[in-house]
């Protein structure tokens, strides 16, 4: 007997979402096959010093344009257990909304001092931090005037934990029309970085972005995350 799980929703006004979202409900996985769906990524990342500071290309180089910000958080599973030694990959647009990615043909200004790519590793308690420039919004659908709100892309990978998500900013006027924000509904709150003051620091402010990795995958190999 076939059993079905979620049906993935198509992001409103998102063409790529329309082209790539499966129409059929997802199939449930029988228990005897479930563990095989938890990939175990090897810990082979060599992080270079300075990769968590995206505000400069390297120590001693000039700071990129825009507001420097600090992002901090704890990565846990749904039981609140810290997910440690996880690779956190970060990418975001510069203050003008332009990525350094070779396929970003928007023509928006580049910043000679900004790469927009960073990496860090969560510590023994699941904590991570990095520094970046508050990204600019960018026009995603010029034909209908829909923007992507300010956001920072993040990927978390370690052991069997896997999450790719985006951190959004409270009060961004473009949040409400964002296709994925619409799909998140009330849960959108989980994807907003909570702003806090950083008095006396050379940063505009900090954002607390705690990450909870859902599902069973992170709990399969508990030795790893206990």
């Amino acid at each position: 007997m076939t059993q079905y799980g979620r049906t993935i929703e198509i992001g409103p006004t998102d063409n790529t979402s329309n082209e790539r979202t499966p129409r059929h409900p997802l199939h449930l996985i029988p228990d005897s096959a479930r563990a095989s769906f938890a990939p175990y990524a090897p810990y082979n990342y060599g992080i270079n010093p300075g990769e968590a500071d995206m505000t400069r290309l390297a120590a001693g180089r000039p700071r990129a344009d825009g507001d420097p910000i600090k992002v901090t958080g704890t990565i846990t599973d749904q039981f609140g257990r810290p997910i440690r030694n996880s690779l956190v990959e970060i990418w975001n647009a510069n203050k003008h909304g332009r990525y350094t990615h070779i396929e970003d043909q928007s023509g928006l200004p580049l910043d000679p001092n900004f790469l927009g790519i960073g990496r860090t590793i969560s510590d023994e308690n699941g904590n991570y931090e990095f520094w970046s420039i508050r990204p600019g919004e960018y026009l995603a659908r010029p034909d209908i005037g829909r923007w992507r709100p300010k956001h920072i892309h993040m990927s978390i990978r370690g052991g069997s934990s896997r999450l790719i998500t985006q951190m959004y900013f409270n009060g961004d006027p473009h949040n409400d029309a964002d296709p994925m924000r619409i799909l998140m509904g009330d849960n959108f709150d989980k994807n907003i970085g909570k702003e806090y003051d950083t008095p006396g620091k050379e940063f505009d402010c900090g954002y607390q972005f705690d990450i909870v990795i859902g599902g069973k995958n992170p709990t399969f190999f508990e030795n790893d995350i206990a």
């Binding site: 846990t76 749904q78 999450l163 998500t165 994925m180 989980k190 994807n191 909870v212 859902g214």
Partner: peptide, 10 residues
């Protein structure tokens, strides 16, 4: 259980 962070597009 804690509410998971929403996954988002790549």
């Amino acid at each position: 259980l804690l509410t998971p962070t929403n996954e988002d597009t790549l």
